[in-house]
Design a protein around this nucleic acid. Structure first.
Lengths: 347, 347
DNA sequence: TTGTATGCGTTATCAC
DNA sequence: GTGATAACGCATACAA
């Protein structure tokens, strides 16, 4: 039933078809489309317009890109599409781009940081007008300002050393301060911050530094510690939590802070393994507010990031640059929201 | 510090540059690149090769697309990028495409089913070589076989009426049978299947039908019911669960089956509201195996879909068609895996 | 105001 | 074997 393909598919109408149908030149059609504000002859315009709708003509973005240099394409590179944060950002950015008539080309590094440059080049090949980067900015394929082929870029969540481009992210310092303050106010005195290995990732370092500042501001009343957790080191994490719990039993209320959604899940799993109860045995506040936060135990307190707004803002930022906005690199820090649930309540 | 832009960016090398550098014609360079197997002159080949690496020449995919008609682009349209299922599929597909030298252009419908045709056209404008569709196949912008501009497509998870293209999905019937069988074996006699509104979505209908078949196969020992849950009707869901629980208290063990991840979350939230405990008060098995399944209550039993494999398979399918594979539309049904946890255990 | 001619970077069809 | 040359679909100087 694969059909004998008798219908000689009438191939998309080109500008030449429209020109012929309207009895004008290709240039006229092109002008009608691009510079309709000025240079118009009433009757000709009408003829062209008719032909355009008649033939359902749509310009070929590829030809336009080749000729005019603009593709109306935005390249979006994410370190790891598995990360819900990246997906949420993607979602916000994609919507903003679509609304502005741009399409998003996605390149997922799959956590292979050495492919960053490869990604840039692949995307640049398609003449993307700009980049949105949610990557590490490290590794062999490290990109510098001019690996970007002169195209504008905006960094999301993670800064790259030596790249002076617009930057959009959560206000990490403020968010961490809110979380710590909440715990201290709630009577917690032993704080453990668990993060993925810093590895020079700016957002992880900023949060860790902010944690240190918060603890320092309350010393010596409050004690704080940082633990770097990798995915394959469950034992280490368990030990850290057990040690924390031990201190809690000595009378000082203890709480753990998770540095992002991945760690939040990891900690939740570890506490389940250890039989520790949120809020009762140990307080718990996580970064990112996963959909399951309300369902687990007494509910998980968390710092919700405005992920979609971050994506939208990043896209908007980039689009403004594409429209010619000049000036120094901007930093847009969006506020997080502390959602209090049972895991950090009285206990 | 925006730089005085003194560096006259050396613009990407073109095939003409390579030709000049090697002292040959553009045609020769093009042949060297595309048809290297035959028609080669040893010395010339060497000169071209040198020039290519020297200038770090990379062909422009856009120009290639314009000229040769192929873009090495795959258009991926998803109904809703918020759905973790879609993301997982995306991930698998994107990886397979990248490995084959293709890039993925993503278009997210944001659940606006009327934009399906718009999406197709936008992507077709960029000369994508083929489509991967994870959409409803319904609504105003309904696409028929030849809205695809003659390009091959593969459907994922949801069939479209009247489209005879390759189709990749979970083996819904087998998965449902496994889940039901597991519950019946476990002594559950009152089964409630909760699904999102069928609305003609093929996967939902297939699962619902399979549920009906399973119940029928065990009648009259087992009784089954179906409830369609919308996002804004928490009360109805609560009532359905309460009714089920009432039957359970009359001595017949009852269990709920959730039709997908969204419903699974909805049901979990409802049971928390109602104070019902998985496994004890009511058995619970969900479709899709969310990351939090092990953490909630005694652990949530679930049918894990091989989402990444589904995405990979879809991409492979499409790439095969692009390589000229003929023949009737294929159906690839991948097996799910029942992961048993506490929620469907003894009670 | 409108038409003509040229270029964007490739591939393919011809001659040579 | 290799080199001109004409497309591909569009935008834009330039000429009219």
């Amino acid at each position: 039933m694969s059909a004998a393909a008798p219908a000689p598919r009438p191939a998309r109408a080109t500008i030449a078809d429209v020109a012929k149908a309207a009895g004008v030149s290709k240039a006229t059609v092109s002008r009608f489309l691009n510079h309709r504000e000025r240079l118009l002859s009433p009757d000709i315009a009408a003829r062209v317009e008719a032909a355009v709708t008649q033939l359902a003509y749509t310009p070929s973005p590829m030809a336009q890109a080749l000729s005019h240099g603009r593709s109306r394409l935005i390249g979006l590179i994410v370190a790891d599409i598995t990360n819900p944060y990246s997906v949420a950002v993607l979602r916000g950015a994609e919507k903003a781009c679509q609304d502005a008539g741009y399409l998003v080309m996605l390149f997922n590094l799959g956590n292979d940081i050495d492919r960053e440059r490869e990604a840039i080049n692949a995307l640049a090949g398609y003449q993307v007008d700009g980049f949105i980067l949610n990557t590490l900015g490290r590794g062999a394929g490290l990109i510098d300002a001019d690996a970007l082929h002169g195209k504008p870029a905006v960094l999301v969540d993670r800064r790259h050393a030596g790249m002076h481009t617009d930057f959009v992210s959560l206000d990490n310092a403020a968010a961490m301060k809110a979380a710590c303050g909440h715990l201290v106010d709630g009577g917690y005195r032993e704080l453990l911050y668990i993060t993925e290995p810093l590895k020079g990732v700016s957002s992880r370092r900023e949060r860790t530094a902010a944690f240190g500042d918060c603890v320092a501001a309350h010393e010596p009343r409050v004690a704080g510690e940082v633990y770097e957790s990798t995915g394959d080191d469950g034992d280490g994490l368990d030990a850290a939590l057990r040690a924390l719990h031990k201190r809690a039993k000595r009378g000082r209320r203890a709480a753990v802070l998770a540095g992002n959604a991945v760690v939040t899940l990891r900690v939740a799993a570890a506490m389940a393994r250890l039989g520790l109860r949120f809020g009762e045995d140990i307080g718990f506040v996580g970064f990112d507010d996963p959909e399951w936060a309300p369902l687990i135990g007494p509910g998980l307190s968390a710092i919700a990031q405005p992920t979609e707004a971050i994506g939208r803002t990043a896209a908007t930022c980039l689009l403004e640059r594409l429209q010619g906005l000049e000036g120094p690199a901007r930093q847009l820090l969006l506020p997080g929201e502390l959602v209090v649930r049972g895991s950090s309540g009285g206990g």
